[in-house]
Amino acid sequence: MKRILTLLLIIPLLSMTIENDKAKFIGKWIGEDEKEIGYSNFDSEGYAYFEVQGQIMGGKEFVRKGKKGNMTYEINSKTNPIQVNLVVTMLEPKEQKKLLCIANFIDHDTMEFAISFDENRPTEFDSENSLIFKREKQKNE
């Protein structure tokens, strides 16, 4: 009986930790790469998108080459740096690709983010694979 009670207490704590880790990412982030401004956005529903030159890739629904898809994200903050998976799902035909990333919070509103377009997760932040993103403040903040 004690084991069951212990499990009932631990499970909500684990889900709270996962939600708190995800909450660090939620918001619209602005970054600059070779003088080009871009945005990344992580929402509370688990969707993510990138926006460059007005073009949006990802989110709850997007169209690429005439096909619909979406992009979600997964966070593993038990690692250092934090592991982030961006999961791009094309709906027809059903195909999935994971972009393996790492993130490091410099402060609450500044994040270093590295992404790999091959199947290897970056192990460090360098000028080739990473950007610094600043959280864009909402008007009511």
Rank of each mutant, 00 (worst) to 15 (best):
M1W: 03
R3A: 13
R3E: 12
I4T: 15
L5V: 09
L9C: 13
L9E: 14
I11M: 10
L14C: 02
S15H: 11
M16T: 04
T17M: 15
I18E: 12
E19G: 02
E19V: 08
N20Y: 14
N20G: 09
K22C: 06
A23K: 04
A23C: 03
A23D: 15
A23Y: 02
K24M: 12
K24V: 01
F25P: 06
I26Q: 11
G27C: 12
W29L: 04
W29Q: 07
G31A: 09
G31I: 01
D33Y: 07
D33F: 10
K35R: 04
K35H: 01
E36C: 05
I37V: 11
G38Q: 06
Y39I: 01
N41D: 11
F42N: 00
D43I: 03
D43K: 02
G46P: 10
Y47T: 11
A48W: 07
F50V: 03
E51N: 09
V52R: 13
V52L: 14
V52F: 08
Q53F: 11
Q53G: 01
Q53E: 08
Q53Y: 00
G54F: 03
Q55Y: 14
M57P: 01
M57C: 04
G59D: 08
G59F: 04
K60L: 12
K60R: 12
F62S: 03
R64K: 14
R64W: 15
K67A: 14
K68C: 14
G69V: 08
N70T: 06
M71D: 06
M71A: 00
T72Y: 04
Y73W: 09
I75N: 03
N76A: 02
N76D: 15
S77G: 00
K78C: 08
K78S: 06
N80Y: 05
I82D: 05
V84M: 00
N85E: 12
L86T: 03
L86N: 06
V88F: 10
V88H: 05
V88Q: 02
T89C: 12
E92L: 13
K94V: 08
K94C: 09
E95I: 15
Q96Y: 05
K97M: 15
K97V: 15
K97I: 15
K97F: 09
L99N: 13
L99D: 14
L99W: 02
L100A: 02
N104F: 10
H108K: 13
D109Y: 08
M111D: 08
M111P: 01
A114C: 10
I115H: 04
S116Y: 08
D118H: 07
E119R: 10
E119P: 11
P122T: 03
T123Y: 00
E124D: 11
E124S: 07
F125R: 09
D126C: 11
D126P: 10
D126E: 13
N129A: 03
I132N: 00
I132T: 15
K134W: 10
R135P: 14
R135C: 13
R135D: 02
E136F: 05
E136C: 11
K139N: 02
E141A: 11
E141L: 12
